[in-house]
Design a protein around this nucleic acid. Structure first.
Lengths: 159, 159, 159, 159
DNA sequence: TATGAATGAGCATTCATTCAT
DNA sequence: AATGAATGAATGCTCATTCAT
């Protein structure tokens, strides 16, 4: 397996682990096991756990912002449908939530700020409803991280 | 100092530590230092770090739900004002966010579920706007945990 | 309660705890709870846990030696009956075993040596059979400590 | 050094530490130092201190039973010679005594019961003298643990 | 490219003991 | 005579990371 393939695979598996457990609770041992490699191999592809997380979470935020930009021109219902789908099938939302809660390490905060800006920009098209849109995105992420989003139909139906 | 006083003081200081750093990153050493006591003294008042966190986060959710119930009969603007104030001056919002992201420990999840239900109930009075209200509460908590809420005036001004 | 009474009560309860769990596993908290007093009160009557143990175990060895001296003039069967009864109803045998295994602390070793000598002297009357008698006493102590003596009828019947 | 070699070395050094000090008093730090490795390395080879002890003590009992089986067909004097040699040169006897006194943890008790049975079976060939044989083995173990066996010539001469 | 073996730093927790009351 | 509150020192154990192969 080429280095690039391994790297991609590692990013994918790490995304799931970090999203489900959070930065601290997801150990490098868990990530290695999920990827099917030995622990030191992680360090062939990333300088540290923190770098791996930054990359994973940054990419999640960026691609999530992209998907949001696609549906925003439509309406709030479309945005909500997207979030529900995301929460059910991908770790992106949860990862963004984990990233925002990451802590006070300067390097990580920079990534978090950047993620927030990109989401904000993606939601700009909502105009007057931007406030609501942003709240929805973040709340969905939080609940997704908590594993409560999908099963809680009352909220999504209330819209 | 009586045991009860010490216990209360410990709850207060632990709330801040847990809110700022999250469950894993906030060490018992940090909490002890913030309280001005030795580490083992924590265990005279709480059986474990997990019990301390549960108590802290559960109480935060309950008292936050109380404050929300007070302002909900008014309007969304009142709710938002409350959240802004909370985020700026108290660790409650952030703690609830940390609690929801807590992990998969069954005991902790039960506390999280309970917290979520009490918040939901407190927001029930918003009627048609419940969805928005709930999203706001949760997003505020998330951003508060990230320490980004207050400094990000754009969002709050957008309302 | 007078100091002397408390002291005696403490010795009695500590004997049981030390016999059942051994020196290290029996905590001062356990002993205090069993005696119905607060932990610091132990230190009103004994300078340290080690002193308490020495006193308890030394007394056990002495009084056991006394009982042995009484039956030795008879025969081995009488000795064995005594040991069986001891193991079933008193912590003395187990305590002596714990004492002999106590470790390398010089102070404790001195007590252990003394205990061994007193037992030896008590068994002297057995004459040619002294070897067997001593082996019996010690093995009974070991098994008693392990909680296996009484329930193991095969051994005692084999005699 | 291969994992298997390290594991064997660890078993050997731990045997000595546990035999000399007992389960509680022998710290993982002591064992690591005696083996010439860092403390965490212990946990690469054994899941816990308790597992390490079980393995060490169980193996000691099994191999001791084997040696006993070899000499039992001869006579009691041969058995005693074996015990004296064991006590002087190996931690096996002491370990078995420590195991029997181990405490009330169910897992450990099971190992202790098993050890006792294997010793009993090994001594079965003594026929009428089985009682004496078993008492000797156990008493030797107790004294060996106490470090008193070898130096106490009176007992061994009494035979 | 990958890993088997190992570890320094740190973690939550326990324990015997002290001291002011 | 007794204890409620507290702690210094240590314990078993985990984790991200390194290095020789």
């Amino acid at each position: 397996m080429t280095a690039e393939e391994r790297r991609a695979q590692l990013l994918e598996k790490a995304a799931i682990e970090f999203a489900q457990r959070g930065y601290h609770a997801a150990g490098t041992a868990d990530i290695a096991r999920a990827t099917g490699i030995a622990e030191p191999t992680i360090y062939r592809h990333f300088a540290s756990k923190e770098e791996l997380f930054s990359e994973v979470a940054g990419a999640a935020a960026a691609s999530l912002a992209g998907r949001i930009r696609e549906v925003v021109p439509r309406d709030l219902a479309a945005l909500e449908a997207l979030l529900r789908e995301e929460a059910a099938s991908a770790p992106r939302l949860a990862l963004v939530a984990r990233l925002l809660q990451g802590g006070r390490d300067p390097a990580m905060r920079r990534v978090a700020q950047e993620a927030l800006l990109s989401l904000e920009e993606a939601l700009a098209g909502l105009g007057e409803e931007a406030h609501l849109g942003r709240a929805m995105v973040l709340a969905a992420g939080l609940l997704s991280a908590a594993g409560l989003y999908v099963s809680n139909e009352r909220w999504t139906q209330a819209a």
